[in-house]
Design a protein around this nucleic acid. Sequence first.
DNA 1: TATCATAGTGTTTTT
DNA 2: CACTATGATA
Length: 638
Amino acid sequence: MITEGELLDDLNPAQREAVLHRGSPLLVIAGAGSGKTRVLTRRIAHLVLTGETRASSVLAITFTNKAADEMRSRLVNMLGDEARYMWMSTFHSACVRILRTNAERFGYSKSFTIYDTQDSRRLIEQIEKELNVDPKKIRPQALLREIGAAKSEMVDFESYRDRASGPFERTVSEVYSQYQQRLKQFSAMDFDDLLMVTVNLFEACPDILDMYRDRFKHILVDEYQDTNQVQNRLVLMLGEVHRNVCVVGDADQSIYMFRGADVRNILEFEKAFPDVKVIALEQNYRSTRNILDTANAVISNNRSRIPKNLWTSSDTGPPIFRYRANDENDEARFVSKEVKRLVDQEALFYSDMAVFYRTNAQSRALEEAFVMEGIPYKVIGSTRFYDRREVKDLIAYLMVVANPADDLSARRIINSPKRGVGEATLAKVVEYAKANKINLVDSFSYATEAGVSKKASEALAELASVISDLVKMNDDGAGPAQLLATVLERTGYRESIKSLEVHEAQSRMENIAELVSMAGRFGELQDMLETVALVSDADDLYDIEGKVSLMTIHIAKGLEFEVVFMAGMDDGVFPHMRSIDDPVQLEEERRLCYVGITRSKRWLYMTHAWERMLWGAYTSSIPSRFISEIPDELVRDL
DNA sequence: TATCATAGTGTTTTT
DNA sequence: CACTATGATA
């Protein structure tokens, strides 16, 4: 176990102050690379080590599950097993935990289902059709976005209805209301509900709120600049009594406005707690001076910004390298050659390097070039493993087993694998379920009564019997892996894949195998489904050993690399077209650029292409304005 | 009902 | 271009 001295020894005065401060709320303004994670970890360790707080009274919120796991394992190293009792997770995971414990108090089943964005979109599209709204004219995504925005400001569908004006908002209002009713009926919640419903729960049941307020003696939140209003509300609610709230953030790294994040929460925090202690961490330990100067030069172009002076005592380092490529293939070739050269001449490892881009689509050309050069790489993010068709299909079976009220998942499995159930059959069972007020899954056994053809009703009866067996197995304690194996065999899912094209079949089987092996790590179905619903792209960061990492800049937040390539530095790509004529959004793009630059410890490359394949046609572009914001003397052309 | 071909349509970023 | 939605045909 670590000693108190060791905890504080290698900290600078500001960091130490942040670790030691007591007695009032604390706001740590932490510049990029200033050691905020270290401060957060040490602060928690110090609280527990000195006996001031028990680990189980600590609530620490991070941006990703991965970050939470890392912090927890560091704390376990410092404090021993007691650290395992800390609440350390994302807002979403913490809320799920609270909601599961108290679900019955507000009319949801304890085994409520969590819908991801894709599920929500499907449900909304379904509702649009029922309401005779053309999903082509008003895209489900647009509705979901609007509904999500409302939820992140805690506007429920009743209040939305009251304030709706104009045709669009009235449509949204109708869909929103239907959507919520349906979610409730299915005992399901979407991402935004997890947060909003928790706040509602606390408001409706003061005794529950008091319980958690009392329990969490210390609350710590990382990446505060990326919290939205509901999250802010949760923190303020929970922290109100003990007031031992410590939040860490950097307004210059706020890059999730589009998701409802509100930098003003940092200011709100100061307003909510007038006696707040503010500590600024301004020494950067990560990057060379050239990189820091570059970052500072770029970000200083943001007008709505509180100036800050991030400094470093490290060496000047290499200049920023710029390459002007003919097209995206030339750009990718340059990057791959340079990666090779750095490995050969600078004795760097592949895992020291990362390539960042603005949009996932840009990874393609890079991947091709890497394959060509034989460079090992890993694309982080892009299509989530759990979003793959076959994976979602199989998980839908498990979701129905865990929560039979989940009609959306029932709809998904009704004809996958294909069992001769089409639109007509679906309509009949849906109608039957509605008329008899039963779950859609339960209607499968009454297909004949519902007027379904003999062939289809036989298929549905068989499906119903498989599901009831699965439910029984689950009750008897069979693990998720065993359930999956049963689904694969009994439903003919495995068999159905054989009819696919060889390459496709192989890739699907691989994914299924991975899913089954992942399921094997869980004893409880519910645990598995929860993990599946809440893991993010960024949580996928294992397995980069010996590989170059490719990712969007958003995912790169919080990471650092010896060498960073920022590809696609073209006006229109980055900053993105849709942000260019809105000053507010342009500033967010610039912060994103700042985040990218500050990920680099030593080498930074920016590449741009004069021509780029876009929507199947070559489009010409000019270098990103962000490049021209870097002082010339820091840049070297290659 | 399934399958195939064709048309149309859309691409930011994600817990 | 790549994906999906739609519609004609078996």
